[in-house]
Simulated assay, not measured.
Amino acid sequence: MYQEPVIAVHGVNHYFGHGRLRKQILFNVTTEIQPGEIVIMMGPSGSGKTTLLTLIGALRSTQEGSMKVIGQELRGAPQSRLVNLRRNIGYIFQAHNLLNSLTACQNVQMSVELHEHLSPRQRRRRAEDMLAAVGLGEFVDYYPYELSGGQKQRVAIARALVSYPKVVLADEPTAALDKQSGRDVVDIMQRLAKQQGSAILLVTHDNRILDVADRILYMEDGHLSTLETAPV
């Protein structure tokens, strides 16, 4: 049975700068990602990986080609549609970007504040449940400065997944973590995304986590291809 891809990128080109300084960053990028699929994107620094991630996440405007996310065409889309779409996307970055003035629970709860159908009590409960799911059930009222690097990244994962997003975009989520912490957070992402049916696109240089991928993409000089075998 055919499933519509949750991410469909076709013929996307992207440029930075203007006039003589205009430089092409992405070249005819085409790929699709299905619901529940975990895709890792690798490649050298400066090859265009983060640019593509921000385009898919509606954090940057699509200039040329077609960019469909959760059935919505992003190219030329009004700002209101992009805002609504972002509510269905979970973002995880190398820097956890937690607010130090908020507890772990309050940081996670921020992601469901825009879901007006939930009462304040329901939002708190959902945040607590997600923190428990990432192994931080006893740390809900801890502040970021009281947590380790791995624990902070778990909070960031909980924040990204608490609204049950259809798409999760992760940019180097294990770069600042030791081997065990990195494995832990990737395993959590894999388990929760599979349970929720989310599609994950994960940018990494970390060869230690490639085994979680259903498919590996490779970006070099703005050109995207599929790796038939994982790099050693």
Rank of each mutant, 00 (worst) to 15 (best):
R125H: 13
R81T: 15
N28L: 00
H223E: 15
E4P: 00
S66R: 10
I7H: 02
Q151A: 13
R121E: 14
N107M: 04
Q153K: 00
A132L: 06
Y142R: 13
S111M: 12
K152V: 06
S80Q: 09
H117W: 13
E138M: 06
V167D: 07
A213Y: 01
Y143Q: 11
T204C: 07
Q72D: 07
K23G: 12
L210I: 10
N88Q: 14
A160G: 02
V12T: 06
Y218V: 08
Y143C: 15
G76L: 10
S225V: 15
Q109L: 10
R75D: 09
V6T: 15
G57Q: 02
N100D: 14
R22D: 10
Q195T: 11
P44S: 09
V83P: 12
V186I: 14
V9L: 12
Y218A: 14
E32G: 11
L82A: 07
Q180P: 15
L52D: 00
S119Q: 03
H14D: 05
E138G: 13
K194D: 08
V162P: 06
P173G: 00
Y143D: 06
T54F: 01
G71M: 05
G135C: 09
Q3L: 08
Q72F: 08
L21R: 13
S80Y: 08
A160S: 00
N28Q: 04
I7C: 03
P120D: 04
L26I: 10
K152I: 01
N84S: 13
R126E: 04
L201T: 10
Q151C: 05
G197W: 05
R60P: 05
K194T: 08
V232G: 11
Q195R: 11
Y218G: 11
L21W: 12
M130E: 10
Y164V: 11
R75Q: 12
R154M: 02
K166G: 14
Q190D: 10
L177W: 07
A158H: 06
H14M: 01
V83S: 09
V9E: 03
N88S: 14
P78Q: 07
T50P: 03
H205R: 02
I92T: 01
H14T: 07
L21C: 13
R125V: 08
T174M: 02
G182K: 02
R20W: 06
G17M: 06
A175K: 06
L85K: 07
F139M: 11
I33N: 01
T229H: 13
L59P: 01
A58R: 01
Q190E: 12
Q94V: 00
R191A: 10
L227E: 03
D214A: 04
G182H: 01
V6F: 03
G150N: 05
I209W: 05
A77L: 09
S119M: 00
I38D: 07
V39H: 00
G149K: 02
G17N: 04
Y145K: 12
